[in-house]
């Protein structure tokens, strides 16, 4: 069977709309999730034991169950409790809750890998703990966190394809419906795959660029 991409042309806007939905869901879930992740991280490392245990349990539960199961639970499970969510909202909630757990761990690793000597130097200068965090630890920690966060953004973008299972009209969903109408399965998967690849590569490139401009000081340092 010869490959023929011409049949896909009438559906290009459908694919692009799918891509847009995937991007939109990803960005919102990334922003909301990484903000929620801050709270989870603070709760986990905070002094209040019950809260710390609760946050740890949440993080581990999310990180040790499939995203697909989490989405099922929200989309098919919650209606049993009388909560019916639109696919977009269900996907947004699911990806946000999932992302929050991962980013919380990214923050923890990033802060822990700031050399202890920097905090000590701050202490030895008479700085208060809050000042040490604000002026000494925060930026090196951000530098540590940045590559992992952008990586997480790409993973989240790719994971948004799972939304197709709960009929979220994102890119993979669009690919499947174009495939079903045109029977050009390989062609549409190739095009869709390239769209994912292109966007991921752009994100990766942009993050490398941002890293070198934002953290110019880090050239030659190993923090």
């Amino acid at each position: 069977m010869a490959l023929y991409f011409g049949d896909l042309l009438p559906y290009s806007s459908l694919l692009l709309e799918g891509l847009w939905t995937a991007l939109y869901i990803t960005l919102v879930a990334m922003l909301a999730g990484s903000a929620l992740g801050v709270l989870l991280y603070l709760g986990k490392v905070g002094a209040r034991k019950p809260l710390s245990i609760l946050c740890t349990c949440y993080i581990e539960a999310i990180r040790n169950t499939p995203l697909l199961v989490q989405l099922y639970l929200i989309y098919f499970g919650l209606p049993a409790l009388g909560i019916n969510l639109e696919p977009v909202l269900a996907a947004l909630i699911g990806l946000t809750l999932n992302n929050a757990a991962y980013t919380a761990e990214i923050y923890r690793a990033g802060f822990e890998s700031v050399p202890h000597g920097l905090r000590e130097a701050g202490k030895a200068l008479g700085m208060k703990p809050a000042q040490i965090v604000q002026y000494i630890v925060l930026l090196p920690a951000t530098r540590n966190v940045f590559p992992a966060l952008t990586n997480q953004l790409i993973l989240l973008f790719l994971a948004s394809s799972i939304g197709s299972i709960i009929s979220l009209p994102e890119l993979t969903n669009a690919i499947m419906s174009v495939s079903n109408t045109t029977y050009r399965t390989i062609e549409v998967l190739a095009v869709g795959g390239l769209l994912y690849l292109g966007v991921s590569a752009l994100m990766s490139l942009a993050s490398k660029r941002a890293e070198t401009t934002l953290f110019r000081w880090a050239v030659g340092t190993h923090v």
Binding site: L118, A121, K123, L125, M127, Y135, I136, P140, F215, W217
Partner: peptide, 30 residues
Amino acid sequence: RQEAGMVFQHFNLFPHLKVIDNVMLAPLKV
């Protein structure tokens, strides 16, 4: 600690601050 300055084996300079800002940080904030 303000009266007893300390110098460490591994320097522990603040990597994200310029040399001058490393020196100015504690006078400004403390």
